[in-house]
Amino acid sequence: MADIRLNVNGKVKAITASPDTPLLWVLRDELALTGTKFGCGMGLCGACTVIANGEAIRSCSTTVAEVSGQKITTIEGLSADASHPVQKAWMAENVAQCGYCQAGQIMSAVVLLAKHPNPTDEDINEAMSGNLCRCGTYNRIRGAIHRAAEEV
């Protein structure tokens, strides 16, 4: 067990955890930030995607020790009132079905748009193919990213 400081959604949190604990479980179990989801635990599905220092990372396969001191943003930190352009686009396109994968999808899309404000379909494939959606909302995800790109 170690004392670790995490900067999550603009707030510094002190936690005690074994340093090998995946960030995902600290967010969910310790900090009660349950918007970030568990899907595979192996970096294969993207359900656990959060942003760390501007990069989309898989929190299931990143230890707390690795991101200590980095600026972490989870879905809860994007905006609580759904006013972020990506969130708005997601609602406008009615992307979600079960919704479980969507926090991860949105976080990946936010990073994509920060890097490519006008992404091509190829850019989207590249950035989003690590995020699975078992409900099959892929075409709406694509539509929502293009819509958000127009708004940003």
Binding site: R28, D29, A32, L33, T34, G35, T36, K37, F38, T74, I75, E76, L78, S79, A80, D81, A82, Q87, W90, M91, N94, A96, G99, Y100, Q102, A103, I106
Partner: peptide, 27 residues
């Protein structure tokens, strides 16, 4: 008609089974 749960889903507030926490809960 837009999905009733849209807002909760895109803000991470929607509560799935995995998100349930009850007092004194073990894992």
């Amino acid at each position: 008609v837009d999905r009733i749960d849209n807002r909760d889903i895109v803000t991470g507030k929607a509560k799935y089974g995995l998100d349930v926490r009850v007092p004194g809960m073990l894992y």
